[in-house]
Amino acid sequence: MFSIGDFAGLGRVSVRMLRHYDAIGLLRPAHVDPHSGYRYYTAAQLKRLNRIIALKDLGFSLQHVQVLIEEKVGVGELRGMLRLRRAELEAQVQRDNVRLAQVDARLRMIEIEGHMDTGDVILKELPALRVAELSATATSYDDPNSISGNLSPLYPRLMELMEKAAVPMCGAPIAYYLPAPAGPGDETITVHAAFPIGDAEVGDDPGFDVTVLPAIEQAATALHEGSMSEAFRTGQKIATWIDDNGYRTVGPGFAREVYLDCPPGEFDKWVTEMQVPVGKNDGD
């Protein structure tokens, strides 16, 4: 048998925690010395302790943990619950990493306020473009997790449908955004994933939409290098150029994104052209 201190060390928990578990009846010592009151545990009790800690880490209250323990949750069921929790935690870490990257990027933007170089912003005329596309709805334009979470899965699905329909793509992937208000104050937007298809023939009901993106007489454009979670850096550069040169945005003001180079998994190496339709201010 092991003293409470030794058992705590073996189980990687605190003595205080074991005392609490004893007090609430969750994990009783195997033996309590009647004279000294010292608690003693057996190695077999580590099995119960492991289940307690695992269920606690899943987010269950100690009251619910006790119920589950008494119901003798099986190893397979417990493993499934742990895997689900692991996936949730990994997703949360990914979301937090995106937020941290954004914070760092915002800080860098603050540091260069008043010294932004807009020399690489180019005014272009964009021709009409016939595209195959799929769309989804995101909660808001300023939530990168909602944008990427809804937009990213559309591309492999669209590629699969286009291959099945024998419709070849003839240009770089495109993303564009449109407001999709459902009521006052609603900020939801429709995200569109598209591939140019030129004059390719498309049969009936291919599983995707075919539309023509209208020609844009003037668009302020700039290359964004790096993850799209930091696209606001280039967006602010374009905004500064628009303001400094007497232009205004035309339409909803969302930038169209053309993914010129996007190596899988290497988001810091992506090269994306951002295109914002503009017009000259009245009187200019």
Rank of each mutant, 00 (worst) to 15 (best):
S135D: 03
V131G: 06
R86P: 00
H115S: 13
S61H: 01
V121M: 08
D282E: 14
E113H: 09
L123N: 05
A128C: 08
D284V: 10
G74L: 06
K56N: 01
L68N: 01
P206N: 10
I197P: 04
G198R: 11
R39A: 06
R85E: 02
L26A: 06
V250T: 13
T190L: 09
V67K: 02
V278Y: 03
T249W: 01
Q218G: 00
E90T: 06
R19P: 01
T221Y: 05
L55D: 00
L27R: 04
R12M: 04
R12T: 02
L100R: 14
C262V: 14
I4Q: 03
V278W: 02
A136R: 07
V32A: 09
L134S: 04
T188R: 15
L68Y: 12
R19K: 14
N281I: 11
R106V: 13
D120T: 13
R83A: 10
E113W: 09
I53K: 13
V167Q: 10
I147P: 00
A136E: 11
R48F: 02
E160D: 13
I4F: 06
D120P: 00
H35R: 12
L68M: 15
K124T: 04
L10G: 01
R157Y: 04
L260H: 07
R130A: 04
Q94M: 09
Q66T: 02
T188P: 00
I197V: 10
G251S: 09
I53M: 12
R19A: 05
V15K: 15
I4K: 04
I174D: 00
P156E: 12
Y155C: 08
R12K: 14
E77F: 01
T211M: 06
Q92P: 00
A101N: 09
M109Y: 11
R79P: 00
Y177T: 03
L82I: 15
A239I: 03
I4Y: 04
D22C: 11
A215I: 08
Y21E: 02
W241N: 04
Q94S: 13
E217L: 06
P277M: 07
F267R: 12
E90W: 02
L26S: 04
L26E: 03
I122W: 02
T137R: 10
A231N: 07
S152F: 13
A136F: 05
L129Q: 14
I110C: 11
L151E: 03
E163H: 13
A132Y: 05
L223V: 11
F208Q: 07
S3C: 05
D6H: 07
